[in-house]
Design a protein around this nucleic acid. Sequence first.
DNA 1: CGAATTATTGATATTAGTCAATATATGTGG
DNA 2: CCACATATATTGACTAATATCAATAATTCG
Lengths: 259, 259
Amino acid sequence: MDQRPPTCRITRYGPLAHDEALAFEEMAGAPMTLVRGQYVRHRGDADPKVYFLRSGWVSCSVTFEDGARQIVKIHLPGDLVGVPSFAASVASETIQALSDAVVAPVSNQNFGKLFRHHPRLAAILFVVSQEERAFLMRRLAWVGRTRSIQRVGELIMSLHDRMSLADPTHTGPMFAPLSQEEIGDATGLTNVTANQCLQELRQRQIASWRRFSLEVHDRARLEELVGIPREANRTLDWFEDRMPDQNPPLLPKSLTTMP
Amino acid sequence: MDQRPPTCRITRYGPLAHDEALAFEEMAGAPMTLVRGQYVRHRGDADPKVYFLRSGWVSCSVTFEDGARQIVKIHLPGDLVGVPSFAASVASETIQALSDAVVAPVSNQNFGKLFRHHPRLAAILFVVSQEERAFLMRRLAWVGRTRSIQRVGELIMSLHDRMSLADPTHTGPMFAPLSQEEIGDATGLTNVTANQCLQELRQRQIASWRRFSLEVHDRARLEELVGIPREANRTLDWFEDRMPDQNPPLLPKSLTTMP
DNA sequence: CGAATTATTGATATTAGTCAATATATGTGG
DNA sequence: CCACATATATTGACTAATATCAATAATTCG
């Protein structure tokens, strides 16, 4: 489905140096194969890990005693999954495969190594975390303050953006493995209301999402319905050192120059 | 109100070294004094900055065309405000003073310096960002999947936790400068429903929040109503380097040892 | 004191939820 | 390939929660 190597979340901020790419690849442990519906962990589990999502889709959700749940993030290949529970004693979120998927666990120690030896990668991971915060803020705002149809529209829009980013040339239907129950769980609605919203979106020729196939017919009207533009772009400019005297040479001057 | 210096978000992960504390203090620019209601910036504003909140409370919110808004975060002294828009071209969130407050802007360049020269502080800021993500996930779940009374309860609980953290010995009413309209904006409710929920919480002797004074009467029953325990603790263990052979000496071995 | 904001109350409207039945699609083993 | 079990989607009748609207009361602030 997605031909690119799943590092688009990281390489958006510029190409990685060889050793950075290597470190990032080697951070993860042995890959685990998941079938749709399989749990990686539950909310409340001790010593949560972070996972690198190699292929397929997984959801992160907050679950309730009565069986209700809220999906708080749908992860696509290349994402780091479970980071909100990083360095915590127990997991905040349940991780479950939405499609057959492959994830590779990342130990906290390897995260530490990455932060100590590759500060630029740390900077990128920090910025990506802020993207995720902005994403959650937006989802919270839409769930708290808009009608069902706009909530579903916002979900479709954000997925469409992210899939387009991974595969910019793609047109036509895309693989989006959520049941209507899961769409409801992601938008704070029931499966019944999710169903009605999808029907309205189809009928208004804005988007059709049936079974696991999603097609956006009219991006402009989708944006108009949802009432929000695309997410803002970010850069890594802030991390670059533009003041020459703050960029020390590899060896101290005294060892390489004659006085 | 709060006697501690406003660095509790950071110092929870251990004491800062002298140079770290200095760098953290010097990161911010000239403080700005705000009166209640004053805007620091609006959603969509270009070149957003981060702000260090020295005193008072501020809100971050997502605003809609029709005047509706969702408050996505209530910030207490010591918080960094506006970080979700860090390094973005336009701001994701509106920042507004909930009480008279003092904030100090932090330039992106100073953030860069901090990340380059103080990797342990970068690691702490990373972990704090994950705390915030977990917070947003929880709020999203409560707004999407619980009744009005539980949403208001969750808000009270999280504020109570955070205020207790800043001032563990405090008992009795606390200063919590939100109008009922603002409580509604934070929970995805109207001012009318927020009012009814507060009355029910008072009548059930769980908590009373009138005008800007909040008192939790029965923490246990509040937790029971909300149905969630306290947030999990986090550590900075992952950043410490415990494996000796992975901590290279300052000079390569070949230069310091005889073959 | 008086204006403005905030809180409270009640009547009514609307949205989305609940429940339950049926239809359709998917997957499995014989 | 079919028959069956299961999961998912669709529909309709009814209910409950919360919003909306509007009026009044209380509080704060200059």
